[in-house]
């Protein structure tokens, strides 16, 4: 289904989560699709089943998947996943904004970029000029 990057240092459950999210957001896994059972994925990837379970539990809490008793895990309707994805992107945005602040970008500069995006302007780096 997917392969983990050997050099990735993040905890395995995070990597698994991200890969499945990517498949859902990208549409490879559609609403209602069954995803592999914990056992299938653990055996297939030779990874601890408790790690897979942890990833699935978190994906469930974030609204990407849901479990049906005795049937396994399924992809949840898109609106829920999109909402969850929105929160995640927002967290990334916050991180990025903080980093930009550290590196000396001013509040007005960032606001300018956001304003441009919302007005449908073309921002392609700094050399675009006004």
């Amino acid at each position: 289904m997917f392969q983990l990057e050997p050099g990735d240092r993040r905890p395995l459950y995070e990597q698994i989560k991200e890969n499945i999210k990517f498949l859902i957001i990208g549409g490879s896994l559609a609403d209602g699709d069954r995803i592999p059972s914990v056992r299938e994925l653990a055996v297939n990837m030779a990874i601890n089943p408790n790690t897979i379970q942890k990833a699935y539990k978190e994906l469930e809490n974030e609204g990407y998947i849901h479990s049906l008793k005795a049937k396994g895990y399924f992809v949840s309707p898109r609106s829920q996943a999109e909402k969850a994805a929105g929160n995640e992107v927002l967290a990334k945005f916050t991180d990025a904004a903080r980093e930009l602040m550290y590196t000396g970008k001013t509040f007005d500069e960032l606001c300018g970029i956001i304003e441009q995006i919302y007005k449908g302007g073309n921002i392609d780096g700094n050399d675009n000029g006004q």
Binding site: L12, V38, R39, A42, V43, N44, A46, I47, N48, P49
Partner: peptide, 28 residues
Amino acid sequence: WRLVLNEVAERGMTVLISSHNLRELEDV
């Protein structure tokens, strides 16, 4: 490893493993 992890997933088998292969331990 796949066979061992299958027993862990299916029957709840417990495994205690001593190893110096830390890369492998990280997965299992």
